[in-house]
Design a protein around this nucleic acid. Structure first.
Lengths: 101, 101
DNA sequence: TAGTAATTGTAAGATAATCTAACACAATAT
DNA sequence: ATATTGTGTTAGATTATCTTACAATTACTA
């Protein structure tokens, strides 16, 4: 489920280096509920490689003129679809191997 | 050849968090030629997940009493073996598919 | 079209993180 | 016995990050 790509270990300066996005933008996309970095005990943000991929997708959408609100909807839909699919798969497995509750 | 695990994106504080090693030790192992972090333009060290694995191997060796110098020898030998093996493989491929120079 | 919301930039001030260099000292090696 | 190794700690300087606020522009909306 969670791989190295999901480990939140990259500080914002390096995310900036890697994506070319300004730190302002990166923080703003968090404010709008699009990314969710972890924090160190003192409050420094930490991002994962997956977060960086996501940020670049967001940047692309933004260039197409899509607003953060819509991007957020899309992300939520995508997440829901994935959850639904996973649930279906679990259901199938249950039906096969775990007939009685 | 190079994967996400080799991207140097993790600052020393987080390496410390992840490994439990003091920053002093981490820098010292660099001084002894055991790890080679990249640097940001301003000089901040950046480590990869592979570096972190390596650092933990080093820490284990150290606990067994092995000195950094020996550890370095071992690492160099390991590297040489890998290079040798790779060269052999390339050689085989050449023999198969690329008979004339 | 006027007015509100969204998106970014920039600045200020505070705090956190990192760097290098140096000194100390115990443990090891020669 | 002396030299080397490995770490901790400190000091001072520099860099990085955080939050908050204000400004300006662009994009919706009633």
């Amino acid at each position: 489920m969670t791989s190295i790509k999901d480990k939140k270990v990259i500080t914002i300066g390096i995310v900036h280096e890697m994506t070319g996005l300004s730190e302002r933008k990166i923080r703003y996309y968090e404010e709008r509920g699009l990314v969710f970095p972890d924090r160190t005990p003192r409050g420094t943000r930490k991002y994962s490689f997956s977060d960086i991929e996501l940020l670049m997708e967001i940047a692309n959408k933004r260039e197409e003129g899509v607003q953060t609100y819509e991007i957020k909807q899309d992300l939520n839909n995508k997440k829901k679809k994935e959850e639904y699919r996973d649930e279906m798969i679990r259901g199938q497995l249950n039906a096969q191997f775990n007939i009685r509750k």
